[in-house]
Design a protein around this nucleic acid. Structure first.
Lengths: 341, 341
DNA sequence: CTCATTAATGCAAACGATTGCAGCTCCGTC
DNA sequence: GACGGAGCTGCAATCGTTTGCATTAATGAG
């Protein structure tokens, strides 16, 4: 068996409470005693049992972080920022992956309950009702999802989508496609709405394709449909989809950006590495990770909730090589405000 | 406060032990009572406190998984495989990232202690002595690291490195470079040793460069040095480094594979997406994740350790577009077994 | 009808820590 | 020389569950 506080107490001739205090309130115990206890503890290899401590104090000093897909390069920077930030505040972050499955997501939240002080839910796929119910199990902060009464940090992807569409329109593209994201995704809806608005304002036509899986595969699969739709500009739900699409189009003999322009969302590392380098909407993931931790810690620190905080972070458009002026044949055919049958 | 077993007991007019049993040993309680308790529990929203349960049973049904860098695309498939496999066995996997810092690694192992039943250590950066000490805190299984007396699953990257060097030599390359990995990495040493052996056997010269950071940046930074070394074939510690190198060489006007051939290690998703598609040593990450979980569960399930198991998984060479025949000017200048000053 | 058996439940002691309260010693003060 | 206070330490209850044992009631056998 592991060595417990009791073993240390016995071996150093003091009561367990003194040992406990040596670790959790050192100033309350005589320097001499403290040193003796520490020495014995060290020698016995004693480590406080954090689970047991959590039972009495109600604080585990752990945070949970749930993402839909660790393999999506969008998340690691956020995760790392959150971990580093939390560690500096003497908290540990445990990460879990839901595999895009809402049921797994719920199960994981339940599993985290009482083992962490709070959880960061990144782009949850769960429905509003379930989330509202779950919030009573464990405090949480949402990332990229808005729900009344719950603290959240949002990246204003709608703004980014608008910029993207305006960028394409400015390049002369009039027939655009949107490769949409997962049903449950709040981000996906924001992108769709803003892109539609911006397209309408710019007098461009916008076709919605999908949703397919929010991965390269999803993008690759969408390629034939994109080609068939005869669009010249595409906004993809995220960079992975965009990269997959470029790949898929290449196989169909469609060149990017010569024949069609593609813009992604997220600005993951691969966007820079891709050929052509991807034009994309950059997300402030690091800031989001830090902010979310701060909000969560503030939430678990206080007895009463206070008003649910909401932080909105800005997104920007990064123009690289995957977008270019629309092909000439396409332009003269339609009026700027052209309607379609 | 959260609703506890006691609340349920009171509300349903039975003793706490009966409530406990309805959840952990249903067959011991009368069907009628059980249903009543379950109904009350449901209505009150009772959830067992897993930390408290772990205190008495000694089992948390959680596993920890520690990696050096979540952002490295090598890990996600392994992580996902481990999570899925564990979930099927009613275990949850919590992941933590050490940021390549051995101190953080140790801290995380300590943090996991008693909160999980065992931990999977992926390519730990910790020294042998520390690992040997830590193993008494919590059972663990090593991945890609060998240490006497500790169960491990290894991917035979040495074999892969040998294949890679033979592949390059077979294409006529005589001057090779190895971009080495982090000091503490067991894999890195294996690669270096095997590559050196294979190079010697093939009569090729092998220059070791680095170590730099095992990331794209690291590869990019190494590019000038590679160019200066006037080699025609490079084996990189991993795909990220290889991809960064290709990028860095391009900026220097050196073409891959025309001027120099590059092979990576890991076969991450980006290897297929890169232009040129990367020739690389494929690692059986999914199998590794599953096997590691199995070994760990077997380890925590039994009272006495038994012999430390060791599983070695095979690696293969995937030839794509980043390797080609050595440039012609280079070949006639030297004998196959050419020595250098 | 009695007795052994079984099924269902209650009782209370753990698990490993924390913490309010009380007690003791020692010191300085008046 | 009694008193008040400070500084340490011990006592025991508590956190939410599990589980070996005792208890009770119901069942079946002889």
């Amino acid at each position: 068996m592991a060595v417990t506080i009791r073993d240390v107490a016995r071996a150093s001739g003091v009561h367990v409470s003194t040992v406990s205090r040596t670790f959790s309130a050192p100033h309350l115990v005589n320097a001499e005693t403290r040193n003796r206890v520490l020495a014995v503890a060290e020698q016995l290899g004693y480590r406080p049992n954090r689970a047991a401590r959590g039972l009495t104090t109600g604080r585990t000093h752990n945070l949970g972080l749930i993402v839909a897909d660790i393999a999506n390069p969008f998340f690691p920077p956020l995760i790392k920022a959150a971990q580093a930030h939390a560690r500096a505040r003497d908290y540990h972050v445990f990460v879990a992956d839901t595999d895009e499955d809402p049921r797994v997501e719920e199960e994981l939240i339940r599993a985290f309950t009482k083992q962490v002080d709070g959880v960061l839910l990144c782009a949850p796929r769960l429905g509003d009702r379930t989330l509202a119910k779950l919030r009573r199990q464990v405090p949480f902060v949402l990332v990229n999802r808005r729900l009344d009464g719950l603290p959240a940090v949002l990246m204003d992807v709608g703004h980014g989508a608008r910029l993207a569409v305006e960028h394409l329109a400015g390049l002369g593209h009039r027939r655009l496609a949107l490769l949409s994201g997962p049903e449950g995704s709040w981000n996906s809806r924001r992108i769709r709405e803003s892109a539609a608005d911006a397209a309408a304002a710019a007098g461009a036509e916008l076709t919605v394709i999908g949703p397919n899986s929010p991965t390269e595969q999803g993008g690759q699969i969408a390629a034939p449909e994109v080609a068939r739709a005869a669009v010249t500009g595409v906004l993809a739900y995220n960079d992975l989809v965009a990269i997959g699409l470029v790949e898929g189009l290449a196989e169909l003999g469609v060149r990017v950006p010569d024949d069609v322009s593609v813009v992604g969302v997220d600005d993951i590392m691969q966007a820079r590495l891709n050929r052509p380098k991807l034009t994309t909407v950059a997300m402030p993931t690091v800031a989001a990770g830090r902010t979310a931790v701060d909000m969560l810690l503030q939430l678990v620190g206080t007895e009463e909730p206070g008003p649910a905080a909401l932080t909105v972070l800005e997104t920007t458009l990064v123009v690289r090589e995957s977008t270019a002026a629309a092909p000439v044949e396409e332009r003269p055919a339609r009026l700027p405000s052209g309607e379609v049958t």
